[in-house]
Simulated scan of single mutants.
Amino acid sequence: MSAQILIVEDEIKIARVLQLELEYDGYRAEIAHDGVQGMEMATAGGWDLILLDIMLPRLNGIEVLRRFRRKNEQTPVLLLTARDTVLDKVMGLDQGANDYITKPFEIEEVLARIRANLRFSSKKGEVEEDRLTVADLTLNPKTREVRRGEKEVHLTPREFDLLYYLMRH
């Protein structure tokens, strides 16, 4: 079964080009043209990956990401935006984005980043064990809970994914 990708992009031509390219590569893609519609579709579930613009009408992409991450920490979200300052990138990644792609972009790079994120997220889904332990650090991949000894450690989604990767490898 091909991966399902949600494109949340208000520029109709860009959204359509992305959809056509993704479908040509064998993905199933749907489009939302504003933040409210994107949030509704994202939380409805069933997505393997979400491409999310930041500057959206009705509800900006960072707020969509923030709300979505409260409900779903595992689906990869790639920010696709014209905002290219270091502060914008840091803010997006700290809010839970898995990657940040600036416009204008080359479609080959977008497709490569999608493949990389889908590979990583599919490996996370294969975990069967209840927890990983290194010294007194314990990580539960199913509940995304981390403990050092008896104390709970709070991590951003990105920090959790990095720690998970390091503990697995």
Rank of each mutant, 00 (worst) to 15 (best):
F105P: 08
D10G: 04
R113K: 14
I12D: 12
G96R: 05
V153S: 08
D10P: 04
D53R: 08
V153R: 02
V36K: 13
N60Y: 01
V36G: 03
L87W: 07
L163T: 00
D48F: 07
K142T: 12
G96Q: 09
R168K: 14
L118Q: 06
G125P: 02
K103I: 02
V64W: 05
G46R: 07
E63I: 05
R58P: 09
Q74W: 09
P141Y: 00
L51E: 01
Q4E: 13
A44M: 12
E152G: 04
L139I: 08
F105L: 13
A44G: 15
R67I: 06
D84H: 13
G26I: 07
E73Q: 15
G149A: 08
L111T: 06
R67H: 06
E23Y: 03
T156M: 13
K89A: 09
I50Q: 07
A42S: 14
M167A: 01
A3Y: 15
I54C: 04
Q19M: 05
T138L: 05
N98Y: 00
Q37L: 13
L65D: 05
I31P: 02
E9V: 11
E73W: 12
P157V: 05
R119F: 08
L137I: 14
M167W: 00
L79K: 05
E73P: 06
N72L: 08
E21C: 08
L155I: 04
K71R: 15
T143G: 01
E21L: 11
L22W: 01
M167H: 00
D161I: 02
D130V: 06
L52E: 10
D48H: 11
L56Y: 00
L78P: 04
G35F: 05
V134M: 12
H33T: 12
A29D: 09
V8W: 01
A82Q: 10
K151M: 10
L18H: 11
R83P: 03
V110P: 09
Y27N: 03
N98G: 14
A97V: 04
R144C: 10
E108H: 10
H169R: 15
L155V: 06
I54S: 01
H33A: 05
M167T: 01
S121L: 02
E108Y: 11
L93Y: 02
M55T: 01
